[in-house]
Design a protein around this nucleic acid. Structure first.
Length: 300
DNA sequence: GACCAGGATATAG
DNA sequence: CTATATCATGGT
C-alpha cells in the first residue's frame, strides 16, 4: 500500500530563487481559468499523453515540487513528460541571477523584483494552446478573452471529473482543425480569429508548424520571423508565444498594452509611454526583456 | 454612448 | 511604404 503511494509521487528539485507562493498567486489571478485549478496551495492539472488523460497534483515542500497522481499509475514516459511540462511551466531551468543583478540596478525594476522575488515566468508549455490563447487575447480585454477560452475549452476539450470538480484539457488539434468559422462564431469569436486558430491547428497537423520547427531556427530573430510568417501571428503574438511557450528570455512584446500601463504606473505618467521611451527603457533589460515584462505585468 | 481592450490583416493611397 | 477600416463585445 505504501509502496504504491511512493511510486505515484514525483519530486522535482527547484532552484534557489524560486517562489512557489509567487507562482501560485499568478495562477490564482484569473477567475475563469479551466485548464488547471488551485485548491489549498495545490495545483490540479489534467494532461493528455499517449491518448490517456492524466490528472496530477502539484504541491511544494521547500526545495522541491511534489507531484502526485491520484487516479493513475503513470508510466516512466509519462512521468518524464510531466516533469518536462512542470519544468517549462515554471521555467525551472532558468538561472535568474543575472536578471536580478540587472534589475537591482534598474530604478523601475528594482522595487518590483523585490516585491515578487522568486516569481518565474509562468508559461504555457502546450504550444497550440499558447498560440490560441495569444490570438484569443488580441485586442480584447482579458475578461472577455477568458470567457472565449472557457467556451472553447468547455465545448471542445476533453474532461474528467475528480472529487466533484471537472478538469479539462485544451481542445485537440484534430478537433479544432475540423471546425468551421461558424462553429467558433457561435462562441462569439470574431470570424478572423476563428480563421486564424483553425488555420494554425491545420498547419500544425500538416507538420508545417511546431515547437521543434521554431526551436530549429538559429537565432531569436529567425524564430520571430518564422512565427510572424504565419497568418494570425503578428509581432506581439510571436513574442508572447516565444516568452510563454519557448522560455525565450529576450522575447519582448513591446506593443503590449499591459506593459504600457505598468510603465505608466511605475513612472507616474499621465499618459502611456511612447515607443521611443519604451525602447530607451528596454535597453537596460537587454537579455531579460521577457522577465522585465512579466514582472511589470505582475505589478499591475 | 464613446472609447479602449494582452493586435493583425486587408486594402487603399 | 504608411494610413486606415475592420473585427466582436465587455468594461469603464
Amino acid at each position: 500500500m505504501n509502496e504504491k503511494v511512493q511510486l505515484s509521487q514525483l519530486s522535482i528539485p527547484t532552484p534557489q530563487d524560486f517562489s512557489f507562493a509567487e507562482c501560485l498567486k499568478h495562477l490564482m489571478k484569473p477567475e475563469q481559468e479551466w485548464l488547471y485549478r488551485v485548491i489549498d496551495n495545490s495545483i490540479y492539472k489534467l494532461l493528455k499523453m499517449d491518448d490517456e488523460l492524466i490528472l496530477f497534483i502539484i504541491e511544494w515542500q521547500p526545495g522541491n515540487i511534489i507531484v502526485k497522481f491520484p487516479l493513475t499509475q503513470p508510466s516512466t514516459i509519462q512521468v518524464k513528460k510531466v516533469t518536462t511540462f512542470i519544468s517549462e511551466w515554471f521555467d525551472l531551468e532558468k538561472d535568474l541571477r543575472d536578471f536580478y543583478e540587472l534589475a537591482n540596478n534598474d530604478p523601475i525594476l528594482r522595487p518590483i523584483v523585490q516585491s515578487y522575488y522568486g516569481l518565474r515566468i509562468v508559461g504555457i508549455p502546450h504550444f497550440f494552446e499558447a498560440i490560441s490563447w495569444a490570438i484569443i487575447g488580441q485586442q480584447i480585454n482579458l475578461t472577455f478573452a477568458y470567457t472565449l477560452k472557457k467556451r472553447l475549452v468547455e465545448k471542445y476539450g476533453e474532461s474528467l471529473e475528480y472529487e466533484g470538480n471537472k478538469y479539462y484539457v485544451f481542445p485537440s488539434l484534430e478537433i479544432v482543425a475540423s471546425l468551421t468559422v461558424e462553429d467558433l462564431k457561435l462562441l462569439q469569436f470574431s470570424a478572423r480569429k476563428a480563421e486564424y486558430i483553425i488555420g494554425i491547428a491545420q498547419l500544425i497537423l500538416q507538420g508545417k508548424l511546431s515547437k521543434d520547427l521554431v526551436l530549429k531556427q538559429k537565432t531569436f530573430e529567425q524564430k520571430h520571423l518564422f512565427l510572424t510568417s504565419i497568418r494570425g501571428i503578428g509581432p506581439w503574438t510571436a513574442d508572447y508565444v516565444l516568452m510563454k511557450s519557448l522560455q525565450e528570455p529576450t522575447a519582448f512584446p513591446i506593443s503590449d498594452v499591459g506593459l504600457h500601463n505598468a510603465l505608466k504606473k511605475q513612472l507616474n505618467l499621465d499618459r502611456k509611454p511612447t515607443m521611443a521611451e519604451l525602447k530607451e527603457l528596454a535597453m537596460n533589460w537587454e537579455g531579460w526583456q521577457a522577465y522585465a515584462t512579466f514582472y511589470l505585468w505582475r505589478s499591475l
